[in-house]
Simulated scan of single mutants.
Amino acid sequence: MSTDRLLLLIEDDAAFARTLGRSFERRGYTVLLAANLDAATALLREHSPGYAVVDLKLEGNTSGLACVQMLHKHDPAMLIVVLTGFASLNTAVEAIKLGACQYLAKPSNTDDIEAAFGHIAGVTEIELTSRSTSIKTLEWERIHEVLVETDFNISEAARRLGMHRRTLARKLEKQRVK
């Protein structure tokens, strides 16, 4: 099979994977779906995709970063985009170091992902914001970082953050992330 428009989508949310896959198929891609690292590895035995879209958090708290590393080792020329609902500076840097060409926060659509495939080299023309990061944003990023570190154990995350478990639960309830 040709790698010209062959895309591997590693996503454990079956409904989202089907929707995104159909959208890419309408754009002329052939889409291979995998829900985890093992399924992706099995597909790579028979296919050589030129593109991959990897969800950062897969079933069983498996990290998509392991998939990025495996894909990059399989084919260093493969264009890999990481999608996540748990964006953080740490995971973005690691994804790029492991071989991803771009890192996008959900919600991202097919247009965003396809543009990311075309935006491989860094550019200096990115508009810099004059607004500094808010304390709420920094707090939210730190909460997500600790949640990932603790495998989403709210009690342990609250302890590490120095707050009551109910306070953390209320903060998470106010700002749900899919």
Rank of each mutant, 00 (worst) to 15 (best):
T3Y: 02
D4Q: 09
L6N: 00
L7S: 07
L7G: 02
L8V: 10
D12Q: 10
D13V: 08
A14P: 03
A15T: 08
R18Y: 06
R18I: 09
T19Q: 14
T19M: 14
G21D: 01
R22A: 10
F24G: 03
E25P: 05
R26K: 12
R26G: 07
R27W: 07
Y29C: 02
V31I: 13
V31F: 09
L32T: 00
N36F: 00
L37N: 08
A39V: 09
A39L: 09
A40R: 06
A40M: 01
T41A: 15
A42T: 11
L44F: 03
L44E: 06
R45N: 03
S48L: 12
S48Q: 09
P49R: 04
G50S: 03
Y51R: 00
Y51A: 02
Y51S: 03
A52E: 02
V54K: 05
V54I: 10
K57P: 03
E59G: 11
E59T: 05
E59C: 00
G60S: 07
S63M: 06
S63C: 01
S63P: 01
G64A: 07
L65S: 04
V68P: 01
V68G: 08
V68L: 02
M70T: 12
L71T: 02
P76R: 13
P76A: 11
V81Q: 00
V82N: 07
V82A: 08
V82H: 10
L83N: 05
A87K: 09
S88C: 04
L89T: 10
T91P: 06
T91D: 15
V93R: 14
V93L: 15
E94P: 00
E94W: 01
A95I: 02
L104C: 09
L104W: 02
L104A: 07
K106M: 11
P107T: 04
P107W: 10
P107M: 11
T110D: 13
T110R: 10
D112R: 03
D112F: 00
E114S: 06
E114K: 04
A115S: 13
A115E: 12
A116N: 11
F117C: 04
F117N: 01
G118S: 01
H119C: 06
I120W: 08
I120T: 12
A121H: 13
G122Y: 09
G122E: 09
V123L: 05
V123C: 04
V123G: 04
T124M: 06
E127N: 00
T129A: 01
T129S: 14
S130T: 04
R131K: 13
S132F: 08
I135A: 04
K136G: 05
T137F: 04
L138Q: 12
W140G: 03
W140T: 10
E145D: 14
L147D: 05
L147A: 08
T150W: 05
D151Q: 13
D151E: 11
F152C: 08
F152S: 00
N153E: 05
S155R: 13
S155I: 12
S155A: 15
S155N: 06
A157V: 14
R160V: 12
L161N: 03
M163K: 08
R165K: 15
R165T: 09
R166P: 01
T167H: 10
L168F: 09
L168I: 14
L168K: 12
L168R: 12
L168P: 05
A169V: 10
A169M: 11
R170N: 15
R170S: 14
E173V: 00
K174D: 14
R176F: 11
R176C: 06
V177L: 15
K178E: 13
K178P: 02
